[in-house]
């Protein structure tokens, strides 16, 4: 069974149609990349998948493990195994990082009828996962994303992904704002996820990230539609010719 199936997805923000018929099937253990110019609807797609209020699906369906998620709130989708790494992670002043991470992990565990995680063991797990991503202890003690640099915020997204162990991970421009070292560390984090049955959707504007996270399939999004799909060589083509030719084709 496909892990994620996006069928003829149309979505609007207010009265404005943004997604205009997207079809995409992601099977377990596949990495897909979506590339597209600014404003083509990449972040909108990620929000619609994650279940953000205010984004109305006007036609089509989204299925996770064969079940439609359209009636599910964002938190239910997350507990069902969907994870979105935000293009612009949100600052939460006053919300302590550790209690946030624990709250998120426990929400998933309760859903899976597991006991809440032991506090001391959890701190250790977080420290280890953070160390692998080059996240300093001091950052873990601060309020969520407050005072983090752009790169630190992106690493923190990947840390959350590592701790939440999603079934389906969507990464929205995780590469923007990262230097090459950070890019490598973050990519290792994503690649570490790639076990047998996890699906990954990497959204990016540049080809660069795909040198580190090798996609099985690449799709070009323009004006709310997938205008071309191919293998990883498509990304290189975009790099050479730009998006111009693809957009005309739409």
């Amino acid at each position: 069974m496909p892990l994620l199936e996006i069928k003829n997805l149309h979505a609007s923000i207010g009265d404005k149609p943004i997604l205009k018929g997207i079809n995409l099937t992601i099977n377990p253990s596949e990495i897909h990349a979506i590339m597209g110019p600014n404003g083509s609807g990449k972040s909108t797609l990620s929000y619609v998948l994650a279940g953000r209020d205010g984004y109305e699906v006007t036609d089509g369906d989204i299925c996770l493990d064969g079940q439609s998620v359209l009636e599910m709130e964002a938190d239910e989708r997350a507990r069902a195994g969907l994870f979105l790494a935000f293009q612009y992670p949100v600052e939460l002043p006053g919300v302590g990082g550790m209690s946030f991470l624990r709250g998120a992990v426990n929400a998933r565990r309760i859903e899976a009828r597991l006991d809440e995680i032991d506090q001391i063991a959890f701190v250790k797990t977080v420290r280890e996962a953070a160390a692998k991503l080059g996240i300093k202890d001091d950052m873990l003690k601060r309020a969520v994303n407050v005072g983090f640099s752009g790169g630190e915020k992106k690493r923190y997204e990947i840390l959350q992904m590592a701790l939440l162990e999603p079934r389906m991970a969507i990464l929205d421009e995780t590469d923007s704002g990262l230097d090459v070292d950070a890019l490598r560390i973050v990519s290792e984090g994503v690649n570490a996820l790639k076990t047998d049955d996890i699906g990954v959707l990497v959204i990016t504007h540049y080809q660069r990230l795909l040198d580190y996270i090798i996609p099985d399939h690449v799709h070009i999004l323009a004006d709310g539609k997938i205008v071309k799909s191919g293998d990883k060589t498509l990304a290189l083509e975009v790099e050479k010719t730009g998006y111009g030719g693809f957009i005309d084709a739409a």
Binding site: G51, F86, P89, V90, L92, V95, F100
Partner: peptide, 23 residues
């Protein structure tokens, strides 16, 4: 934005609201 961020991590709307009010 803050509510959605918390909920996208699996935290229920009630719990997310509580966390933000408390903060």
């Amino acid at each position: 934005d803050q509510l959605f961020y918390l909920m996208s991590r699996g935290i229920s709307q009630d719990a997310a609201r509580q966390m933000l009010i408390e903060a």
